[in-house]
Nucleic acid binder design. Structure first.
Length: 911
RNA sequence: GGAGAGCUAGCUUAGUUGGUUAAAGCGUCUGGUUUACACCCAGAAGAUCACAGGUUCAAGUCCUGUGCUCUCUACCA
């Protein structure tokens, strides 16, 4: 074992071990493991192929790595499947932007060349994030790295489409969709986010055709869609308008008579209780239009500009310019009654960042399969959610689930495997061909131009990554062994996008086609058994981390400054389960400091004496000499067992934050601050040294094992330096002993800690604390030559006597002496083990101390005089704020007390 | 509109089924080089447990209501 350097330098350690693990194939999971190993599997939530590592990824992937590494230690055959997502809209947007800089449009390239270009782009930037994950220490099985556009994966996606079509879940239909004018594609409801928007509410009057000079008022936030109005509606029971039943109104823009209709969907309380009906541009209006067989006037182009149906003055304008223009035109016509500021929620395209337009288009839709089974899986605990409360959110969504629009008017993605007979009616399914390979007489057909929603590929992730629906021996064996996977770690923001859909996909595809499933079948088909939902990382002010705010630190910078282990420990120490995390670099600093402490405690162990046989738990316990144990020895062994138990329980509950806390408190607070300090006296005693070192080895080894999942690099390094493992073996190959086994190992050598030791050490700690307190009070904290006296009964005196050397060291005293009667004039402090007296005479050179105290007295007198002067000054007491006056009074009284104390001390010194 | 989470020291949080003096880290202040570590050591100050009621011998913890913060969800033009 080579000598441990003074300061821990992660840069010297982390890359070296990562390389070693990779070279040794430590991260590879195989379905034919050694005897008796059970499967453990985690699927990475695939990041966007063009993405870069954010703090959110750091949190998410650290948790996954902790789980996987702990699973390996516990003896499971663990697999962490990595990969990326093609993210059709996001990636296509980026490539389009790049083209724009070259002054080109994707049309200029054509579909094939554009897709080619996107492939090049994803090869260039793709995988950046995966490289960054390596710097974090992520132990993914990189041999398996998957991508949702891999040929095999594409096959899986197309297969699922064809199958679901055959099974009757997929249909084509003209419906209102969420249209993103920026990306010019349809979006699913989940891709629309509601944002509060400041705009205007316009009150507009429409003249009654049959009653010239009489008007009806409507309220709208979108006057530019007035040319698209095909009716005005009011509630059938609304008395105010009953007399207008059957009449028509003049549409003010693109003047035309449109009917007045009654529909119960109109809210009588809102505005004037009337609704302009624009079936082409609003979901509700569209429904109203269907009920009343109204014509549809679409006044918008796909890019969000107004078309010729909007009429002269508006046609050609961008929609928001059109809104202003429409308002101006209405004003001119005298139809605009009022325009007042108004706040409402409107849907934005998540990716495009612009308001969406409800738009009537032909799209492919999916009725979700296995909805009831998906609910049961979670409700009945076959899939467990951590924290549990997300179950409600999940179930609520499934209760109100809407069909999924799965087609996207994009080029980057899996192209929909549907062909239409050339020249025939596309709306007639008789003219469709649905298959993976396409029709034999391809020349007579044309393929659907659209691609599938990215989520319609990533919902297959837990099994498509194994090669499904391929039937190879490998795929079959791997799915059999690793599926259902064990844990999923993800953010609650994609509970609908991804988690719920994966569950439904698993239930539908992981087995024979069946209409309904039994509980046993559900258990076999679910994609994962546990879902851990992380919190969202926010900045110190609680704001979401975002590029535009620039409040997200670059994780790679943090790794280079604090080390991956420091970052991992730090972030886990501030991440309570299921709650948002307020990020602060200070916590990361704590992580780094903890690593450094670990490093130095190991270094101290190494410097204190020869290694002894450390190669196994048995070898270490064999070196324990239970007969020579004192209270501290018993106590630290007992605390070790407690800590192991706590960690075991918390790992089971996915409570990572308490693990960091108990490891921190145990290792730093108990082991370093008390046990190691107490050891320093014992290590001087040759008869007790070997056993004491064995205890240190026992504790350090256990701390390394518990900490390994959080800080794999430094623990692996120290494990090897201290020689705890077999030659050349990695920590992950070590079979972790549980608390019960540790206890048994101690028992085997007669070293089970006595329970009273904990109490006694607590008492000794209090003695030390009180004695140190006395020294601080008398300004002697640096003085190690002081003498203490104590009064104690026989039992107390026995303990204190035995611990005399240790106490002297911990307190910093020359001697600690038992007295029969209370010494005169010494400051005292009661403790659970008797009353302690500080012998002032022993502590100080009386002459020097008198001088020092005299100086202090002068300064205090000065302060007292100043304060008294102020308080005697009437204008001060009259004008100064009360808190200032109180402050002065307080200082005065404390200074007077101090003065009295110093006088007492001077007297005690014989001055 | 509906649902969920939170509110404990200057900051971030512990506080399990009610039960001694409400715990820790950071920060602040004081004092320190001591057989590892200044990324360190010793010590101190700092809390009306959001507010108001209630149940109880006993409430940070249970109940009711209120306030504030955040998140999700919903077709109010």
């Amino acid at each position: 074992m080579s000598e441990i350097p003074k300061a821990y330098d992660p840069k010297q350690v982390e890359p070296r071990w990562y390389q070693a693990w990779s070279d040794a194939g430590c991260f590879h999971g195989t379905p034919q493991p050694a005897e008796g190993k059970s499967a453990y599997c985690v699927m990475i939530p695939p990041p966007n192929v063009t993405g870069i590592l954010t703090m959110g990824h750091v949190l998410n992937n650290t948790i996954q790595d902790i789980l996987v590494r702990r699973a390996r230690l516990e003896g499971h055959e663990a697999l962490w499947m990595p990969g990326t997502d093609h993210a059709s809209i996001a990636t296509q947007n980026k490539v389009e932007q790049a083209l724009k800089k070259e002054g080109k449009h994707k049309r200029d390239l054509g579909r094939e060349a554009f897709v080619q270009r996107t492939w090049e782009w994803s090869h260039e930037y793709g995988g950046t994030i995966l490289k960054q994950l390596r710097a974090l220490g992520a132990s993914c099985d990189w041999e398996r790295t998957a991508f949702t556009m891999d040929p095999g994966y594409v096959q899986a996606v197309l297969h699922s489409f064809v199958e679901l079509y055959k099974r009757g879940y997929i249909y084509r239909g003209k419906r209102m969709v969420n249209w993103c004018p920026a990306s010019q594609t349809a979006l699913s409801d989940e891709e629309v986010e509601m944002r509060q928007q400041r705009g205007f509410m316009y009150r507009v009057r429409y003249e009654i055709v049959e009653r010239p000079g009489e008007f009806i008022e409507i309220n709208t936030t979108r006057p530019e869609t007035i040319p698209g109005d095909t009716a005005v509606a009011f509630h059938p029971e609304d008395e105010r308008y009953a007399h207008l039943k059957g009449c028509h109104v003049w549409r003010p823009l693109v003047r035309e008579a449109i009917p007045l209709i009654c529909d119960s969907s109109v809210d009588r309380e809102f505005g004037s209780g009337t609704l302009k009906v624009t079936p082409a541009h609003d979901k509700v209006d569209y429904e109203v239009g269907l009920r009343h067989k109204l014509p549809i006037r679409d006044v918008l182009n796909p890019d969000g500009t107004l078309n010729e149906l909007a009429g002269p003055g508006l046609a050609g304008l961008e929609r928001f310019k059109g809104r202003k223009q429409a308002s101006a035109m209405l004003k001119e016509l005298g139809a605009l009654i009022e325009e007042k500021p108004y706040e409402n929620n409107i849907g934005y395209s998540e990716r495009g960042g612009v308001p969406i337009e409800p738009r009537l288009t032909e799209q492919w839709w999916m009725r979700y399969p296995k909805i009831e089974e998906a609910k049961a899986a979670v409700r009945d605990g076959l899939v467990k959610f951590y924290p549990e409360r997300w179950e409600k959110v999940y179930l609520h969504w499934l209760e109100n689930i809407q069909d999924w629009c799965i087609s996207r008017q994009l080029w980057w993605g899996q192209r929909i495997p549907v062909w239409y007979k050339k020249g025939a009616d596309r709306n007639d399914s008789a003219n469709w061909h649905v298959s993976i390979e396409g029709p034999a007489d391809a020349q007579n057909w044309e393929q659907d131009e659209d691609v599938l929603d990215t989520w319609a590929s990533s919902w297959l992730w837990p099994f498509a990554t194994f090669g499904w629906p391929g039937e190879s021996e490998k795929t079959r064996a791997e799915l059999k062994f690793f599926y259902p996977t064990t844990d999923l770690v993800t953010g609650p923001d994609i509970i609908f996008f991804w988690v719920a859909r994966m569950i439904m996909a698993g239930l539908e595809f992981m087995g024979e086609e069946k209409k309904t499933l039994t509980t046993e079948e559900i258990r076999e088909r679910i994609p994962f058994k546990n879902v851990y939902f992380t919190g969202i990382i926010r900045d110190a002010q609680g704001r979401k981390m975002s590029k535009s705010l620039g409040n997200s630190p670059d994780p790679l910078d943090l790794i280079s400054e604090y080390g991956a282990d420091g970052l991992r420990f730090g972030i886990m120490s501030m991440a309570p389960k299921g709650q948002d995390i307020l990020f602060s670099t200070e916590r990361i600093e704590v992580g780094r400091n903890f690593c450094n402490k670990l490093w130095n405690a190991s270094r101290f162990r190494q410097m204190s004496g020869p290694a002894g046989d450390n190669g196994s738990l048995g070898a270490i316990t064999a070196r324990l000499e239970a007969a020579k144990f004192d209270e501290y020895d018993q106590w630290i062994l007992a605390r070790t067992l407690t800590t192991v138990r706590e960690c075991e329980e918390n790992f089971r509950q996915y409570e990572f934050n308490p693990i960091t806390q108990s490891l921190y408190a145990f290792f730093w607070g108990d082991f370093c601050d008390w046990y190691v300090e107490a050891s320093k006296a014992k290590l001087q005693d040759e008869s007790r040294k070997a056993s004491c070192l064995a205890i240190q080895d026992f504790v350090l080894r256990e701390v390394l094992l518990l900490l390994y999942p959080f800080c794999p690099h430094i623990t692996e390094e120290l494990w090897h330096r201290l020689g705890y493992g077999a030659e050349g073996a990695f920590m992950q190959n070590h079979a972790l002993e549980g608390a019960a086994e540790l206890e048994a190992a101690l028992q085997a050598v007669g070293a089970v800690p006595v329970s009273t030791a904990v109490e006694q050490v607590e008492a000794l700690k209090e003695v030390v604390g009180k004695a140190r307190g006395l020294k601080v009070t008398y300004n002697l904290s640096a003085n190690r030559e002081v003498v203490f006296f104590y009064l104690a009964d026989a039992a107390q005196a026995a303990i204190l006597g035995a611990q005399n050397d240790v106490l002297k060291r911990l307190i910093g005293a020359k001697s600690i002496e038992l007295k029969a009667v209370a010494p005169d004039g010494c400051p005292a402090s009661p403790t659970p083990l008797g009353t302690f007296y500080l012998d002032l005479a022993s502590a100080v050179d009386p002459v020097a101390e008198r001088k020092r105290l005299g100086k202090e007295l002068e300064q205090i007198d000065k302060a007292i005089n100043g304060a008294e002067g102020k308080l005697n000054n009437e204008s001060f007491t009259a004008k100064a704020p009360a808190n200032v006056i109180d402050g002065v009074r307080l200082t005065l009284s404390t200074n007077r007390e101090k003065r009295a104390e110093i006088e007492r001390l001077l007297q005690a010194l014989g001055g």
